[in-house]
């Protein structure tokens, strides 16, 4: 049958590309379980490289830095981004357009341009590069993603329920807390998760804004690629892969998260 043949072709085609996309990751994961010290030979399955992680203080420190920055940056970005969404929602169409277009520049711009622009800015105002500049940079590129995931929720708000709450004697603050906030909460949560993931994922902007003393994980791994990379990196990457997978599954079960990255281009 012609239909069967074309279905088989489609599946084969998809499979070949998926193999291309996953082969490097799968091989990396496999070698993380290698009993041997290098990638030259696979000598057997062991967890020795996972155990080695405990001694890799540089890597662990970088991981800790990454998590701290991602956590703080995503919290601040969520606050600023949500506030921005409320401001933008009330602007006139012209202003809304201008503000949104400018706010979204870091989302559309090449990372290297964003990173260098911030680095030069910090150099210009004489703030030494380090944790603080890295944090500002992360908040800066995270804000638009939060705004874009909260904004649709504000648009969908039913004004009447808020007014009804006021008519029933609620103060504006109480009405906001009881009526508005629960409605936009899914947008805020998915925005925050998105910001957290983007922070974890970032390399280029961190590379230019973190200076030489404060390293995030990706900056640390990048510096290791100059020499022979220990297989402990594979072990850590495997762990991160699993973590990202779990976050992805959680975010995917939250419908609001779906559109957040949609306006990227």
């Amino acid at each position: 049958m012609k239909n069967d043949k074309s279905l088989i072709f489609k599946i084969l085609y998809i499979a070949v590309i998926m193999i291309f996309l996953y082969a490097p990751i799968v091989v990396m994961i496999l070698y993380s379980f290698n009993a041997g010290a290098t990638r030259a030979k696979f000598t057997g399955i062991s967890l020795v490289h996972y155990a080695e992680l405990a001694d890799q203080s540089e890597l662990l420190n970088a991981l800790k830095n990454t998590l701290i920055v991602a956590l703080i940056a995503s919290v601040i970005a969520t606050l600023i981004g949500t506030y921005a969404a409320f401001v933008i929602a009330r602007l006139s169409p012209f202003r809304k357009n201008v503000v949104l277009k400018t706010l979204n520049i870091p989302m559309l711009n090449a990372d290297i341009v964003t990173g260098i622009s911030l680095m030069l800015f910090f150099v210009f105002v004489s703030i030494p590069l380090g944790f603080f500049t890295l944090l500002i940079a992360h908040v800066m590129f995270n804000v638009p993603y939060v705004t874009m995931s909260v904004l649709p929720k504000i648009r969908q708000l039913n004004k009447s329920t808020y007014e009804a709450a006021l008519d029933l004697g609620a103060s504006p603050a109480l009405a906001f807390r009881k009526v508005v906030f629960p409605e936009i909460l899914p947008g805020i949560i998915s925005g925050a998760l998105l910001a957290f993931t983007l922070s974890l994922d970032d390399f280029i902007i961190s590379y230019f804004t973190s200076g030489s003393d404060f390293m995030t994980l990706s900056v640390c791994i990048n510096s290791m690629t100059k020499k022979t990379i220990p297989l402990a990196v594979n072990a850590l990457s495997t762990i991160l892969f699993v973590v990202v997978f779990v976050i992805l599954v959680i975010v995917n079960f939250r419908p609001a998260g779906k559109k957040a990255r949609a306006d990227q281009a």
Binding site: Y22, P24, M28, T197, D201, I221, F241
Partner: peptide
């Protein structure tokens, strides 16, 4: 899934092939 993996790790994975 691969899109959400760290860019450096992905490129390192390719390098090691």
């Amino acid at each position: 899934l691969p899109m959400w993996m760290n860019f450096i790790i992905r490129t390192y994975a390719m390098l090691s092939l």
